[in-house]
C-alpha cells in the first residue's frame, strides 16, 4: 500500500533521511517506527503525508506517486504529535470542520463515547486540558475509516483508562485489516502492540523485523534492553568510549523506577532518548 524508494531529505545542511527504502504491503499489521530523537521518524511519516517534500526518492501510496497530489490523503488517517486546535472553536465545531473538509462517512459518535468526551463537546478548545485535547485529536484521527492509519505519539498525556481504550481501538482497527504505522518512545506500548519494528538510526534503517528478531540479533531478553544496546553500541562506534556508554545504558534502562514513571508519559521517553542522541553525537 505504501512504497518508499531511496528517500533522501535534509533540512538545510542537516541530513535527516539518507536513502530510505521501505514497503508496507501487509494489511492488518501494526508497525512501530522507533529511533532516538532526530532519527527521522516524524519526517518519514510527514513525507508519506506530503507535508515534507523529499529531496530525492519516490513515495507511492496505493500504487500511485504522491508527488504534487492531495486526493490520496483521504485514504490516510493521521494523528499529529501535538494536539493544538483553534482556541475559540468548540469541540463540536472542530469535528464538523474536519467533516466538512473530508466529507464521507464518519463514526465520531462512538469515539466520543469511547473517550468520554460527551461532556466537553460544547467547550471551547482553548479551555481543555492537554489530555482532553489529545482525546479530541484521537477522535479526529479515527473518525474516518481509511485503510491507512498513521499515529505520531498517540499516547501522550492520556490517562490509564483512555490508554486502554486506545490500545483496544488500535487492535480492533488492525483486525479490520488496516495498515497501521506508529511512532512512540514508550517501549511497553510497542511490546504490547507492534507486529513489526522499523528502527531508524541517524537517517538510515538500522533494523526491520519482529520484536523477537530484534532481541535475538542483539542478544538481549527484553525489548527495552535490546534498544538500549543498539544505542549503546552506536555510541561505542562513534566515540570509542565503551565504559562511559555502558554505564549510561545500565543506569537508564536497568532502573525499574524509570520504567514505571515512563509509562504513559511521552516526555519522559523523550528526555531519555534525547540524552542518548546527544551522547552518541
Amino acid at each position: 500500500m505504501i512504497a518508499i524508494e531511496q528517500l533522501h531529505k535534509a533540512y538545510g545542511k542537516l541530513p535527516v533521511l539518507k536513502g530510505i527504502s521501505l514497503e508496507f504491503n501487509a494489511p492488518g499489521r501494526i508497525t512501530a517506527i522507533l529511533g532516538p530523537n532526530g532519527s527521522g521518524k516524524t519526517t518519514l511519516m510527514k513525507a508519506i503525508l506530503g507535508m515534507v517534500l523529499p529531496d530525492q526518492g519516490k513515495i507511492m501510496v496505493e500504487g500511485k506517486s504522491i508527488k504534487g497530489q492531495w486526493v490520496y490523503r483521504n485514504r490516510i488517517d493521521y494523528l499529529p504529535q501535538i494536539a493544538r486546535f483553534p482556541e475559540n472553536l468548540r469541540v463540536r465545531e472542530l469535528i464538523a470542520f474536519i467533516h466538512d473538509l473530508r466529507q464521507g462517512e464518519t463514526r465520531e459518535a462512538a469515539l466520543i463515547r469511547l473517550f468520554g468526551l460527551d461532556a466537553h463537546l460544547d467547550k471551547r478548545l482553548g479551555n481543555l486540558s492537554g489530555g482532553t485535547k489529545q482525546k479530541v485529536n484521537l477522535v479526529l484521527a479515527f473518525m474516518y475509516d481509511s485503510p491507512i492509519l498513521i499515529l505520531d505519539e498517540p499516547t501522550s498525556g492520556l490517562d490509564p483508562i483512555a490508554m486502554i481504550r486506545l490500545k483496544e481501538l488500535i487492535q480492533a482497527e488492525k483486525k479490520r485489516g488496516k495498515l497501521i504505522l506508529i511512532t512512540t518512545h514508550i517501549i511497553n506500548f510497542v511490546e504490547e502492540m507492534a507486529d513489526e519494528i522499523v528502527f531508524l538510526l541517524e537517517g538510515n534503517i538500522y533494523f526491520r523485523g519482529s520484536q523477537d528478531e530484534l532481541k535475538t540479533r542483539v542478544g538481549e531478553t527484553s525489548l527495552e534492553r535490546a534498544i538500549a544496546s543498539i544505542l549503546g553500541a552506536e555510541k561505542v562506534e562513534l566515540n570509542g568510549k565503551a565504559h562511559l556508554s555502558s554505564q549510561y545504558g545500565d543506569a537508564r534502562y536497568g532502573d525499574a523506577k524509570y520504567g514505571d514513571a515512563k509509562y504513559g508519559d511521552a516526555r519522559y521517553g523523550d528526555a531519555r532518548y534525547g540524552v542518548t542522541t546527544k551522547e552518541s553525537l
Binding site: G50, Y72, R73, P80, L101, L140
Partner: peptide
C-alpha cells in the same frame, strides 16, 4: 499559533 493545527489540515485531502 495555528502552526500545529495547520499540520493537521495539511494531512487532509485538500491542496496547500
Amino acid at each position: 499559533n495555528s502552526r500545529e493545527f495547520t499540520e493537521l489540515l495539511l494531512a487532509q485531502p485538500i491542496p496547500r
